[in-house]
Amino acid sequence: MKNEDNTFANNGLLPEEMDLFCNARPVPYEPYSIEVVEKFFNWMRANSLWIMAFGTGCGAIELNPLMTSRFDANRYGIQVRPTPRQSSVFVIGGYSSVKTLKRIIRSYEQMQGPKFVLALGICTINGGMYWDSYNTIKRLDHYIPVDVYITGCMPRPEALLSGFFELKRKIKAGECDGANRYVKNLDWYKDNQKRVIKKWDMPDYNW
């Protein structure tokens, strides 16, 4: 997996694709050394949660009512961005098959830190009703770091909103360092991902 100079081997790529992708390893980013500045930015992050518009399972249907007049998540600074580059929250909507997991990892790695993951539904915790399915992963936190779980099948939009409040509380307290955890334990995560995703035709880290 690793070259001598600590870059990725990118074994999954075809030889002609090698030049198109970056093979550098990500590095963890420490918070600002001045505590007040970091707290200030954490407050900003908590009040401007941009969701990645990628419905990864049946739970994605719960995101739509969240934006309507009834629940109006917009007033809490939550809005949907259609590109991973600009979004900071990834809502995993319930079960994720192995095929979806590959796309989840690609999108998650393209998001810019600090990034947060909200796992929706029991399926992300221990598989839920898909506990014996041959193509559904059972524990999401083996593949990407998760900040807040919302259990239920399906959780109501109110539960989702309360999950967002919990996420806000954790961000303000500075407890959400999922991006750093991912980078620090990257080899463990990559090992788990490659054990499940047999057709790995993408770079080892999607910059």
């Binding site: 915790i125 221990n126 598989g127 506990w131 014996d132 399915s133 041959y134 559904t136 992963i137 059972k138 524990r139 083996h142 054990r195 499940v196």
Partner: peptide, 15 residues
């Protein structure tokens, strides 16, 4: 499928 799952996908304890 059950054997395959147990071998391939780790399950959280306490289920």
């Amino acid at each position: 499928t059950v054997e395959f799952c147990e071998e391939r996908f780790p399950i959280r304890e306490g289920r």
